Simulated scan of single mutants.
Amino acid sequence: MSYPQLFLRFLRFGLMAWGGPVAQIAMLRKELVEEERWISSARFNRLLAVMQVLPGPEAHELCVHLGMRAKGRLGGMLAGLAFMLPGFLLMFALSWLYFAMDIQSSALGAAFLGVQVGVVAMIVRAVHRIGEHVLNDRWLWGLALGVGLASLLGASFWVVLPIAGVVYALAASGRQSLALVCAFIGVALATAVIWWSPGVQPGDVQAVGASAGPMALFLSGLKAGLLTFGGAYTAIPFLRNDAVGRGWMTDGQFLDGLALSGILPAPLIIFSTFVGYVGGGPIGALAMTAGIFLPAFAFSLILYDRLEAVLEVKQLHALLEGVAAGVVGLIAATTLQLGQATAERVPVLWPALVIFAGALAILYLWKSKLNIVAVIFAAGAAGWFAYG
């Protein structure tokens, strides 16, 4: 297989990447493992287990790894770029169209209100689904609840996530007493950070519409990419912290970006392109996308043959599990904040509650890779009807 053939092969995968990571991974397994034997099924399963522990979108990381097995590091780069390219170009075009049409001032604004409610329901379902896989014992449940509460009270994730990882690593190694001491120290440290943080003054909040430089957007994306455990939804609190907290965009626009990514053949994390576009225009979109996908390339390209050895480092595994539990708490806290912001934005609350309940019903009862797309379009139609 030549380099162009490899690129076109994974470009086709990118064009067919509907339905989220489960459907994307199943597609790769069917064609490259079961039909063409690029790699044994057992090795594919071990690699997938490693990818789920490491940060970044698993399907994209698998493409990089498989491309590298076929044609070396250049093959890995080409496979990863080809897989993400269709989604990136489509999101880039939709980002331009979103502002070119001035959607919020048009009749579509009512539809997007409904869509925002539907996206909150999608995040609620994602928290449940991720929690089912991550929160496997009382320690992890406690860490998720503690980190979520600390986040709602104003503690920075830079403080609480490392503590969550260390506490669970100690607990998993049998040193529960030391883990409890560490947890109490963490609570005291988070309380001190909240207590001594300067209060937010009216003049301190940047006005919505503030622009960001390419480097700031790149670093914001890189931070989210390095902390994305267990799927793209785990990037939401980190990107929102920067995008909304620094005034690059509103919560409504943030939810709109998530909605747009849900209807594209791409990893959901591609909504970072929209965030970058809003924060810094076309260059900002490129910078944010590069930052958030860099770890997904780097882990496969740099570690390659050593990836499976990660499974043997039990202490590192436990540390990452504790961090992942903390991230679940962060997503839950962010969901509450987004839900409150959305409730304050809609003209009448009860139609939003109906849309929310209907979206949850679709997501829980209809087991299809198209259920997210269905929720987005159904919620938009309902929002148009209710608020148009």
Results as ranks from 00 to 15, higher is better:
Thr234Met: 14
Glu36Asp: 14
Gly186Ile: 06
Gly19Cys: 09
Leu294Met: 11
Gln5Met: 13
Gly56Arg: 11
Phe356Asn: 03
Arg129Phe: 12
Val208Arg: 08
Arg345Tyr: 12
Arg46Ile: 01
Ser105Ile: 01
Leu149Ser: 10
Ala107Val: 11
Val160Phe: 08
Ala150Lys: 10
Ile355Asn: 02
Gly56Phe: 07
Thr273Gly: 08
Thr273Ile: 07
Ser368Glu: 02
Gln253Gly: 00
Phe157Lys: 01
Val313Arg: 15
Gln201Glu: 11
Leu316Trp: 15
Ala378Trp: 08
Gly209His: 10
Asp204Ala: 13
Tyr98Pro: 00
Lys71Met: 07
Met27Gln: 15
Val244Arg: 12
Arg12Gly: 12
Ala298Arg: 01
Met122Thr: 05
Glu344Leu: 13
Leu286His: 02
Leu97His: 00
Glu132Gly: 11
Ala287Val: 02
Cys182Lys: 12
Ala111Leu: 06
Gln5Ser: 15
Val310Phe: 15
Ala155Cys: 14
Trp158Asn: 11
Met27Phe: 11
Val115Ser: 08
Lys71Glu: 07
Val167Met: 02
Lys71Leu: 12
Pro198Phe: 01
Phe356Tyr: 10
Cys63Ser: 09
Leu365Met: 10
Leu11His: 02
Gly247Val: 03
Pro57Glu: 09
Leu94Gln: 04
Val205Ala: 07
Leu90Trp: 02
Leu303Glu: 00
Asp305Leu: 07
Ala287Gly: 02
Glu35Gly: 10
Leu330Arg: 05
Glu34Pro: 00
Leu8Pro: 00
Met84Lys: 00
Ala107Pro: 06
Gly252Leu: 09
Asn371Met: 04
Tyr304Cys: 01
Ile25Val: 15
Ile194Pro: 15
Val50Ala: 06
Ala49Ser: 13
Gly131Ser: 06
Leu222Trp: 11
Phe299Tyr: 15
Thr228Pro: 00
Asn45Lys: 12
Lys369Phe: 10
Gly281Asp: 04
Gly245Lys: 04
Glu308Ser: 04
Ala23Tyr: 07
Met91Phe: 02
Pro86Gly: 06
Val328Tyr: 01
Glu312Ala: 13
Gln206Ser: 10
Phe83Glu: 01
Phe274Gln: 03
Ala155Tyr: 10
Tyr387Glu: 07
Leu161Ile: 13
Val275Ile: 15
Leu316Asn: 05
Arg43Glu: 12
Arg240Ser: 10
Thr289Asp: 03
Glu58Gly: 05
Val310Cys: 07
Leu294His: 06
Pro198Cys: 05
Leu140Cys: 05
Asp256Cys: 11
Gly174Met: 05
Gly339Thr: 07
Met84His: 00
Ala121Leu: 12
Trp384Leu: 15
Ala357Thr: 13
Pro21Cys: 08
Pro162Thr: 08
Ala169Ser: 14
Pro4Cys: 08
Gly262His: 08
Leu140Asn: 03
Phe297Cys: 03
Thr342Asp: 04
Glu312Gly: 06
Phe92Tyr: 09
Leu94Met: 08
Leu180Cys: 07
Ala192Lys: 11
Ala324Ile: 02
Phe274Glu: 03
Ser211Asn: 13
Ile355Gly: 00
Pro282Met: 06
